[in-house]
Write a protein that binds this DNA or RNA. Structure first.
Length: 258
DNA sequence: ATGGTAGGGGGCCTA
């Protein structure tokens, strides 16, 4: 089962890219981030016309996540549990058909500028995600936490790590919070298959970052042990970053033999 | 030290 995460940076602006990607790459399951649409205005036909079930969790203007699957989606949760006052649409969960696999699609806060309230929100959100992950892990089922983490885990995950030392994506506290998810027993799927440096999933639109390959790896799939045991492949699909009207992110994939 | 680009929405904010 092929599972992808793709920050599309606006569903309406990315209709053509998303359709082409679904036709070319045919994921079984995908999570999308930054749909930047309320649920009522989401152009569902792009996805449903290709035979996918779809659940969205959007809001006006920014953020917004979705999950799509060729198999039915059950037990959908919208919003990261643990804070009734948080109205940002950054989390969606669903169980995939009768596979027993639960997928969590996430758009972790950027956190810049630092220090400040946005960075405080990022760290609080990561602590809340850790709590949610711990709760889900008690069921000892295959779990996939996929999305835009806005975290550069290691210097090898940036073309120019020194340029990010003061950034919310790479500060020690950010990396420590990501590491705590791994300490819980979650595995960075790409690194299980590809330890080498130089693999990126995001290139800024500005300053020729893409042609200069000035990228960072911030889109991740973390797996419970039960999912990691089924992992047969993981890779980053860089092709869509070179298409017309691209997202600034590109899809990241895993293949699970469930 | 700055500004470089993109998307959404209807006025600057987010990234």
């Amino acid at each position: 089962m092929k599972i992808a995460t793709f920050n599309i940076n606006g569903i309406k602006a990315r209709a053509e890219v998303l359709g082409r990607w679904l036709d070319d790459s045919a994921p079984d399951v995908a999570v999308l981030q930054e749909i930047k649409s309320v649920d009522e205005n989401f152009p569902r036909e792009i996805i449903e016309s290709r035979g996918y079930h779809l659940e969205t969790h959007g809001q006006k203007g920014f953020n917004g996540v979705a999950v799509l699957s060729k198999r039915p989606l059950h037990d959908v949760v919208r919003g990261l549990p643990g804070d009734e006052d948080d109205d940002q649409a950054r989390w969606i969960e669903a169980t995939i058909g009768d596979t027993g696999l639960r997928i969590c699609g996430l758009y972790l806060p950027n956190g810049n500028p630092t220090p400040g309230p946005k960075y405080d929100y990022k760290l609080a959100w990561m602590a809340r995600m850790e709590t949610r992950a711990r709760a889900l892990m008690t069921a000892e089922q295959p779990l996939v936490f996929a999305g835009d983490y806005n975290v550069i885990p290691q210097p090898a995950d940036a073309a120019r790590p020194q340029a990010w030392t003061e950034d919310a994506l790479f500060l020690p506290q950010t990396r420590a919070a990501f590491r705590r998810l791994e300490v819980l027993g979650l595995y960075d799927a790409l690194r299980l298959r590809h330890p080498e440096p130089g693999i990126y999933s995001f290139w800024d639109y500005q300053a020729g970052a893409w042609p200069r390959n000035d990228g960072i790896r911030i889109d991740h799939l973390l797996l419970s042990a039960q999912a990691a045991d089924c992992l047969t492949d993981a890779w980053v699909e860089t092709g869509p970053r070179a298409w017309d009207k691209p997202s600034d992110h590109t899809p990241v994939w895993i293949d699970l033999d469930l």
